[in-house]
């Protein structure tokens, strides 16, 4: 089953002309990468119906956009969660619980303890890392089937980032769950993503399994070369050029610079 199906989703917005099609199979973590302004957040917002698209077809967990029953299955973190400033974790649970049939108070408390989140501290006194962890805990406590995360590890220190990744790994132990997350931190993708979707200027330029992507291309430098090459093309290269396995970072940079053959 596919967690997300997007066909010709279009949106013209602030000089961006978005037109994307992609499919995300359920059970995996899919990273969404691209430069600032490439259309990542706009795509995510269109998926959620927070931005009205100009056209196209979107299915989330097999249901069309706007199907109210889907909302319960979603865990969404755009930038960071927003709750009443004066609420504590206890208040937040009280506010969220009625909206979700599968809410588990035991899970909620388990995750608060696991992430060392205080029950009695006010939300406004939480650090960004704590807010993100609280948002993840909420998504997991209502047993969301799909997490849509916009830069979940952005602006966080390496230790908290790793904690968030650990949470994502924990979440994916259940194979009916899927994560679609945007990020600029390619090392996070190396660590967790199964698939990568790369958007540039409103269009999808790469959409593949991560391992396949890194095996498909070779970084060729020296002897007048400085580009990514498809593995099938490197046969006739002079012997003095250097060939390396590209990192995801290399792939993004060389694609954006148009240095790909």
């Amino acid at each position: 089953m596919n967690a997300i199906e997007v066909k010709n989703l279009r949106k013209s917005y602030k000089g961006l002309s978005l037109d994307v099609s992609f499919t995300i199979p359920s059970g995996y973590a899919c990273g969404f990468i691209g430069r600032n302004g490439a259309g990542k957040t706009t795509t995510l917002k269109c998926l959620l119906g927070m931005t009205i698209s100009d056209g196209g077809n979107v299915k989330i967990l097999g249901k069309p956009l706007g199907d109210i029953s889907v909302k319960e299955e979603l865990g969404v973190l755009l930038d960071q969660p927003y709750y009443q400033e004066d609420w504590t974790a206890v208040d937040i649970e009280k506010a969220l619980r009625p909206y979700y049939r599968r809410w588990s108070g035991d899970d909620w408390r388990k995750y608060l303890e696991l992430f060392q989140l205080p029950e009695r501290k006010k939300f406004k006194e939480f650090s960004r890392g704590m807010k993100m962890k609280l948002g993840m805990a909420a998504a997991m406590a209502h047993d969301a089937k799909l997490l849509l995360l916009d830069e979940p590890t952005g602006g966080l220190d390496p230790v908290v980032r790793e904690e968030i990744l650990d949470l994502m790994r924990e979440y994916l132990l259940d194979e009916s769950r899927t994560i679609f997350f945007s990020t600029h931190i390619t090392s996070d993708l190396e660590k967790i993503a199964d698939r990568i979707i790369f958007i540039s200027n409103g269009k999808i330029v790469l959409d593949d399994e991560k391992d396949t992507l890194c095996e498909k291309y070779v970084l060729v430098r020296g002897g007048g070369y400085d580009q990514l090459m498809s593995c099938s093309l490197i046969g006739g290269l002079p012997s003095d050029v250097l060939t390396d396995k590209p990192t995801l970072e290399d792939i993004v940079v060389y694609f954006e610079r148009g240095k790909v053959k």
């Binding site: 199964d194 991560k210 391992d211």
Partner: peptide, 14 residues
């Protein structure tokens, strides 16, 4: 399980 091993080794499930 593949999922547990992926979590423990910090690699992707694929």
């Amino acid at each position: 399980s593949m999922r547990m091993l992926a979590r423990d080794l910090k690699v992707s499930i694929i």
